[in-house]
């Protein structure tokens, strides 16, 4: 049974400009799926549809056979956790308080934080290796630390599905690997299903089981990294010339950019 089912999704913003059109795909339990595509291809719009921030014009998003528009949002937050790209950090919460906010969907109004809530938060902070930062303020963390703290908050929701919007966008290569390794580890350890928007094709190839390549609001191709990341697909969608090699260690495709003055074909 599919965990997430996207059927004939068409939507956009005010007016009549369609941003995504007729998107259909499935995500199976335990998968890591990446959504890739050039700027303006509709990745962010699709992400907003999957996270219920935007309503479909046509089609639907189903989570375990239920239309997500019909799931009460508090219940939805217990099932699906979302990591946005940026957060306005207007207030300086401590790391511990920030992570504990992830328990909100599990708490009734009159209910206080229970022992089990604190235990889950402690567990997730250990898992994301931020337990040493517990008392620090979120406003004074580095990019990599903040990303792990946000990840811990999402995990504390105890979701089955994690949706991430470019989790590595502001990070250097070392921290990119650190976050992606952590995501992979969570996928294995917690059996967490993961769907993420990624910009970096090589990171997508290295860490995702399947990729969805968007172009002009439509799915251009979908499949394993080696099926999707062919030079034909990339050149057609990104309008540039690339060479695709096999990474000798992972056997995954690796995309090499070719500068314009070296184009020969």
């Amino acid at each position: 049974m599919a965990m997430l089912e996207v059927n004939n999704l068409t939507s956009g913003y005010s007016g009549a400009t369609k941003v995504v059109e007729d998107i259909t795909f499935r995500v199976l339990p335990g998968e890591i799926v990446g959504i890739i595509g050039p700027n303006g291809a509709g990745k962010t719009t699709l992400f907003r549809l999957l996270t219920r921030l935007l309503k479909p014009w046509v089609g639907e998003v189903r989570y375990r056979e239920r239309n997500i528009q019909e799931i009460p949002i508090k219940e939805l937050a217990q099932l699906i956790a979302v990591l946005p790209q940026n957060l306005p950090l207007a207030f300086s919460f401590t790391v511990k308080d920030f992570v504990l906010m992830g328990r909100l969907p599990h708490l009734g109004m009159w209910q206080n934080l229970r022992e089990e809530d604190l235990a889950i938060a402690a567990d997730m902070m250990r898992l994301t290796e931020i337990d040493a930062l517990e008392g620090r303020y979120v406003t004074e963390l580095s990019g990599g630390e903040l990303q792990r703290v946000m990840l811990a908050q999402a995990l504390v929701q105890e979701p089955e599905l994690l949706l991430l919007d470019e989790p590595t966008s502001h990070l250097d290569i070392g921290h990119q690997a650190e976050i992606m390794d952590l995501i992979k580890h969570l996928n294995k350890e917690k059996n967490l299903t993961i769907l993420m928007v990624l910009h970096d094709l090589n990171l997508a190839a290295l860490y995702c089981d399947r990729l969805i390549l968007l172009n002009n609001g439509k799915i251009h191709s979908i499949g394993t990294p080696s099926e999707v990341l062919t030079y034909q697909n990339i050149e057609a969608v990104y309008k540039t010339v690339v060479v695709v090699k096999e990474n000798p260690i992972t056997q995954r495709p690796h995309v090499l950019l070719v500068p314009k003055d070296k184009w020969r074909r």
Binding site: T51, R52, L53, I73, K74, E75, L76, A77, Q78, A81, V82, P84, L87, P88, L89, A90, F91, F93, D97, M101, G102, L104, P105, L107, Q157
Partner: peptide, 18 residues
């Protein structure tokens, strides 16, 4: 607690079930 979540922006608060 809902106010705490809303200080992270409306979208994040929504994702936390608010």
């Amino acid at each position: 607690r809902e106010l705490d979540a809303m200080s992270l922006g409306d979208e994040k608060a929504f994702h936390l079930g608010v």
